[in-house]
């Protein structure tokens, strides 16, 4: 959810800057705010769950 929103903000900001709908610094500001959340949320979205591991730990 958050991943999608922040990703969309990044892409929209980049696109509107390219189409001259936003000043460049404005788009930059938006991306600076949204991009960090996008990276972290993306990772949290696809990372492994906290459940059981698929290989049981058998000790050393």
């Amino acid at each position: 959810m958050g991943t999608g929103v922040t990703g969309a903000i990044c892409i929209a900001a980049g696109a509107s800057a390219a189409l001259d709908m936003l000043p460049l610094w404005g788009a930059g500001l938006l991306i600076v705010v949204a991009f960090p959340f996008f990276v972290v949320l993306l990772g949290l979205w696809w990372n492994a769950s906290e459940g059981e591991g698929d290989i049981p730990f058998i000790g050393y």
Binding site: V32, V33, F35, P36, F37, V39, V40, L42, G43, L44, W46, N47, A48, S49, E50
Partner: peptide, 27 residues
Amino acid sequence: KFSFKETWIPATASEVLFVAVVLVALG
């Protein structure tokens, strides 16, 4: 690889700062 790995916040950490610093670094 790291992004696929199981992730949590250490029990002793200051949660907000622990995460915020990562975001700040990216920002």
